[in-house]
């Protein structure tokens, strides 16, 4: 092989290295964007995390404690709140809040809960043989209003609305830009391959990209999980900590299937490459 031919091959190699790095970089950004779309910007995912992380139980416990105290202060039987503290009941409120945050519904309306609770308390007072005077009615209404405010205080998700709305604005253009960039780089790589017309000069770079993506998709979330993000950080109140731990871990776990898929893809490329080389050697 002549000196000129070798230099040309080296230059070709360098361009391929740069292009495959760019492909890795943009593809990884695209993977991140995909995970964000499937998790942070997905109301259903949020609802499932709220259920599986123990967030609903934490909300229920906090409300139980508050309502018991209110019942004692108001001389009302605590049992009257039982039907308003079931997990299904709280899940309904939490899900409505989540839908509102994601722009899929209106803000939680407590009018019906307010009326139902008022009715239930008055019925329990009357069952005790106490006449419900105007003063008592006013006192009960104050109690019910406080309970509705407690629902809101104990099921709200601080700052999340702000984060989601910001992400929603940025996500779509970002996805498009990344997709275009990734395809452009991929096209350039294919173009380079078409110049050389040798698959064995093209495949190794795709293999490098796939392995790098697998490393990024498996190792970094694994490191983050190993350190147990947020579990060591003290977050208060407890319900927010429980939710954040479940949420962040869930998002990181979403990278693993991508990493495994990339490893399988790299394995396939390696297999093709080895077969190709073997066939070439045989022909030679």
């Amino acid at each position: 092989m002549g000196h000129k031919q070798l230099s040309k091959e080296k230059a070709h190699y360098r361009v391929m290295v740069v292009l495959s790095f760019l492909l890795t970089f943009f593809s990884f950004l695209l993977i991140i964007a995909g995970v964000v779309q499937a998790t942070l910007l997905n109301a259903s995912y949020f609802k499932s995390v709220a259920k599986s992380s123990g967030y609903l139980e934490e909300c229920q416990q906090a409300l139980q404690e508050t309502f018991t105290s209110h019942a004692t202060a108001a001389n009302v039987e605590p049992q009257v709140f039982e039907s308003f503290l079931t997990q299904d009941y709280i899940a309904k409120i939490v899900n409505t809040n989540i839908d509102y945050i994601y722009g899929n519904g209106d803000v939680m309306d407590y009018t019906q809960i307010n009326a139902d609770m008022n009715q239930a308390i008055i019925a329990s007072i009357e069952a005790r043989g106490i006449e419900v005077t105007e003063d008592i009615e006013t006192g009960i209404q104050m109690l019910v209003d406080t309970c509705c405010a407690d629902y809101q205080n104990n099921t709200n998700l601080p700052f999340l609305e702000f984060v989601i709305r910001g992400l929603e604005i940025a996500q779509k253009p970002m996805m498009y830009i990344l997709a275009v960039l990734t395809i452009a780089v991929l096209f350039l790589l294919v173009f380079m391959w078409m110049i050389s017309r040798k698959l064995e000069k093209f495949l190794p770079f795709l293999f490098d990209c796939s392995v790098a993506l697998a490393i990024l998709s498996i190792v970094f979330p694994a490191l983050a999980l190993a350190q147990k993000i947020f579990e060591r950080v003290a977050i208060s109140p407890e319900r927010v900590r429980v939710l954040l731990v479940g949420y962040v871990n869930g998002i990181l776990m979403r990278f693993f299937p991508v990493g495994i898929a990339m490893l399988i893809f790299a394995g396939v490329l390696m297999f093709i490459q080895i077969r190709k080389t073997k066939m070439q050697n045989k022909n030679a």
């Binding site: 970089f25 190794p204 490098d208 790098a212």
Partner: peptide
């Protein structure tokens, strides 16, 4: 295997790509 893309490249380049991506 490719003459220029030697065996070492199959290890070094993916690591280099991932480290560079992470740093950027």
């Amino acid at each position: 295997m490719n003459r220029i893309h030697g065996r070492k490249s199959y290890i070094a380049l993916p690591i280099l790509f991932s480290v560079l991506t992470a740093l950027i």
